[in-house]
Simulated scan of single mutants.
Amino acid sequence: MLVTYLEASRDLCEKDSILFGAALAVCRIIGAKVSTAGRDTGQSSAIPAWRRRIEKRIAKARALIGHRTDRLICFRSGNNRPRIVRTIRMAFAGTNVSLSQPDITQKLTERIDDLKQRIAAWGKRIRRYTERSTRFNQNRLFQSDQKRLYESLE
């Protein structure tokens, strides 16, 4: 059956997919574990790695801000429960700020503002690159096929 499919396939990519499918089927039949980590899944490669890293940083910073603003209010009012103190410490991870300082609430507010500015900068970086990439692709399409460019713009 495999020979029939391989003879009917036209290009190397199609042959690769057929062979991979056959190997995967054999591994499932014999019960062997298969790692598909090196295999290109399509969706993950569509988004560049640098962009995924920046989006992950943005998500972490947003999570920090979300938790901290609620707990900042509790901390300001004198609530020193372990969970609240732990989240406040996490906000200052990597900085030389201790919770025993007298102006800790001001420092926490500054830290939240700093995180918001970083989120804005990362978002602008992604937006700038996306716009540049779109312009580049449109210029290339204009040189090769103007009709397709104008159809895509509609």
Rank of each mutant, 00 (worst) to 15 (best):
residue 39 R to T: 07
residue 39 R to W: 14
residue 40 D to K: 14
residue 41 T to C: 14
residue 42 G to Y: 05
residue 42 G to E: 02
residue 43 Q to V: 04
residue 44 S to C: 03
residue 47 I to V: 14
residue 48 P to M: 03
residue 48 P to R: 09
residue 49 A to Q: 11
residue 50 W to C: 01
residue 52 R to V: 05
residue 52 R to W: 00
residue 53 R to E: 15
residue 53 R to C: 06
residue 56 K to T: 05
residue 56 K to G: 14
residue 56 K to D: 08
residue 58 I to P: 06
residue 58 I to R: 00
residue 59 A to V: 03
residue 61 A to K: 12
residue 62 R to N: 13
residue 65 I to Q: 06
residue 66 G to Y: 11
residue 67 H to W: 06
residue 69 T to R: 15
residue 69 T to A: 05
residue 70 D to C: 03
residue 73 I to E: 15
residue 73 I to P: 01
residue 74 C to L: 15
residue 74 C to T: 02
residue 75 F to S: 04
residue 80 N to C: 10
residue 80 N to F: 09
residue 81 R to M: 05
residue 82 P to N: 09
residue 82 P to M: 05
residue 82 P to R: 10
residue 82 P to H: 07
residue 83 R to Y: 11
residue 85 V to L: 10
residue 85 V to Y: 11
residue 87 T to M: 13
residue 87 T to W: 08
residue 89 R to F: 04
residue 89 R to T: 00
residue 91 A to M: 13
residue 94 G to V: 04
residue 94 G to F: 07
residue 94 G to A: 07
residue 95 T to H: 07
residue 96 N to I: 01
residue 98 S to L: 07
residue 100 S to H: 08
residue 102 P to M: 03
residue 102 P to T: 03
residue 105 T to A: 14
residue 105 T to P: 01
residue 107 K to A: 13
residue 108 L to W: 04
residue 109 T to A: 11
residue 110 E to T: 01
residue 111 R to F: 02
residue 112 I to L: 13
residue 113 D to A: 15
residue 114 D to I: 00
residue 118 R to L: 11
residue 118 R to W: 04
residue 119 I to N: 05
residue 120 A to E: 14
residue 120 A to N: 08
residue 120 A to T: 06
residue 121 A to T: 06
residue 122 W to V: 00
residue 123 G to D: 09
residue 124 K to A: 14
residue 126 I to T: 03
residue 127 R to S: 14
residue 128 R to L: 10
residue 129 Y to D: 08
residue 136 F to H: 11
residue 136 F to P: 00
residue 136 F to N: 08
residue 137 N to S: 12
residue 138 Q to S: 06
residue 140 R to W: 02
residue 140 R to M: 14
residue 140 R to Y: 03
residue 142 F to K: 07
residue 142 F to H: 06
residue 144 S to T: 06
residue 145 D to I: 01
residue 146 Q to F: 03
residue 146 Q to G: 04
residue 146 Q to A: 10
residue 148 R to A: 13
